[in-house]
Amino acid sequence: MTEETIQVILSRYPDRRSALLPLMHLCQEEAGYLTEDAMRELAARLDLPPIQVAEVATFYDMFRLKPGGQREIWVCHNLSCALLGAEQVIRRLEEVLGVSAGETTPDGLLTIKRVECLAACGRAPAIQVGPDYYGPVSVNDVGELVEQLKRQPAISDQPPSSLLKADR
């Protein structure tokens, strides 16, 4: 995270505290999770008591306080997806990867995460990995999806704007 990026973000808000979530996202993209050092630095930088940074970090589902897999596979288990077999998809994913939802594969590549509605219900059962959406995912698609994800190079959560694609 460059000083310039920080300044751009700070300049968007009349109150610097508003920069907390954007800066947390950046820290997490860099280190893979919110390290204690990063949170301490954010608190100092924004003049906030460390507890206020910690309470925000724990409130939001997307922030990770521990290292996880290089990629998170977000599997929606909410209603539209559940109606069309999300639980079977999750079970298959757990079988293929040999870990349970919430866990990371031993090679550190992939984490399965149950998530709430991804606003992709038209493609239920839906899965999101980084910026990409997959669906409808059938039990039979899971093996191939995993192979594909293992082959793809690790990408940061934040794609450059050249990745602007209508099918995302």
Binding site: D15, M24, H25, V56, D61, F63
Partner: peptide, 23 residues
């Protein structure tokens, strides 16, 4: 401004709190 995963932040006053950098 990106949120970070919390349904409740769709409720307008929670959204404003979140935009202020709070829970």
């Amino acid at each position: 401004h990106r949120g970070a995963g919390a349904y409740i932040c769709g409720e307008e006053t929670a959204l404003l709190e979140s935009l202020e950098g709070k829970r």
